[in-house]
Design a protein around this nucleic acid. Structure first.
Lengths: 215, 215
DNA sequence: CGGGCCTCCCATACGACGTTCGAGTCGCCG
DNA sequence: CGGCGACTCGAACGTCGTATGGGAGGCCCG
């Protein structure tokens, strides 16, 4: 297995060649945003960059590298809140931004799967999360566990919401109604958040932070 | 010119049982478990089933169907706890089983992304989750929000752990140590759970359920 | 008994993809 | 000025998902 992009060095560059890794990644993000992950192709990406598809391989080892770089680029937009006395506010702000970034780039859900998050932007945000939580006084493995809990909740939430992002909602409700006897609890209480995704997310995060408060 | 009937061997319906959707899915799960998602190919899958690759398309519309069916099949193994007075125990058992199923089939992390979870096995487990939480007396949208919170946490946890599942751990720690100044909080407290994944998961779930307890 | 029809299977083929290879082009440094 | 490193690209290979059209075997209806 080859190493992750992040652990390798970028090929050194002389001057400012027209094509750079940054331009490739930026264009990849744009392409992914516009057409989805299924249509990201080395050839199509190259075309948008007015270059040959094989040229990309000088700047990048594999298509998977492009995806990984694009994914990390997305997290570059997540604002890092100032250090402050309000650790809980900081955590909420940071995680809301994280969630927003994923929702703004739905393909991130598919890229995330089964891949370690090691990009510099992700690491910087994770560091900020640790810093915010450390303001409670907790340290070491207990801090790590708390950070994992929060981060995992956010990732799962974004994933779930992105998955529900088709016109499928209506069909699901109807399907549940038809099979009311097979899924009784779901049929009775199981309405998708609909337009209340933000509230549902905030609610769950509140639960989690409330449970962590006595830390 | 076809050969004489006598020289052709009779197509034996008995030698190999007829191809069914169930057999296809079961074999797909086995193939995914053994070789990972990158090596699941309609041709390879067909070969393992002693059949032609295009035959699969009579039982299934697209490769994505196979993935979706395989994903739901995985959740069929999750045990559904009995109804009981101990709602919290039931939730923990159910979610631990859910997590275990994903960890046992790491490719599930990649399949999950950006796809609604609508298979019958998933729905049955989700229904059980709603039922367990409903034992607290909460109903309607607040119940749905609680269920979302728990489910999202579990999904995120499994995803994160699966992502960390290469030899990358060591390289990461080293990388963090080298960039200690850039990620100070991470470098100080950010050790991966290592062998403590189960404990970290249980811890976070405890936090969440504790926060929800006053429901 | 016979013929059409439904179910199930498959060989062939097409277009697209990721990636390799080898041959270029261009500007800088000696 | 010569060559070397940085960078680009056309052509090609092997593989993939899937459409198509045809054919075998069993079943029902006449």
């Amino acid at each position: 297995m080859t190493e992750s992009v992040w652990l390798r060095e970028e090929r050194s560059r002389r001057g400012a060649p027209p094509l750079t890794r940054e331009r490739i990644v930026a264009e990849a993000v744009a392409l992914l945003d516009e057409e989805g992950i299924g249509r990201l192709t080395m050839r199509r990406l190259a075309e948008r960059l007015n270059t040959g598809s094989t040229t990309l391989y000088w700047h990048v080892d594999t298509k998977d590298d492009v995806l990984e770089l694009a994914l990390d680029a997305v997290f570059g937009d997540v604002p890092i809140p100032d250090d402050g006395a309000d650790w809980r506010g900081a955590v909420v702000a940071l995680m809301s931004g994280w969630r927003r970034a994923m929702l703004d780039h739905p393909w991130s859900a598919a890229v995330l799967g089964g891949r370690p998050l090691l990009g510099p932007n992700v690491l910087a945000r994770t560091d900020a999360l640790y810093a915010a939580l450390a303001a409670t006084g907790v340290t070491g493995p207990r801090l790590a566990a708390a950070a994992y809990a929060v981060a995992n909740y956010v990732i799962g939430s974004a994933l779930t919401q992105i998955g529900a992002r088709d016109g499928a909602e209506h069909a699901v409700e109807e399907y549940l109604a038809r099979n009311r006897d097979r899924y009784p609890a779901l049929a009775e209480h199981g309405h998708l958040p609909g337009d209340g995704w933000d509230a549902a997310f905030a609610q769950g995060l509140d639960y989690l932070l409330a449970g962590m408060a006595p830390l």
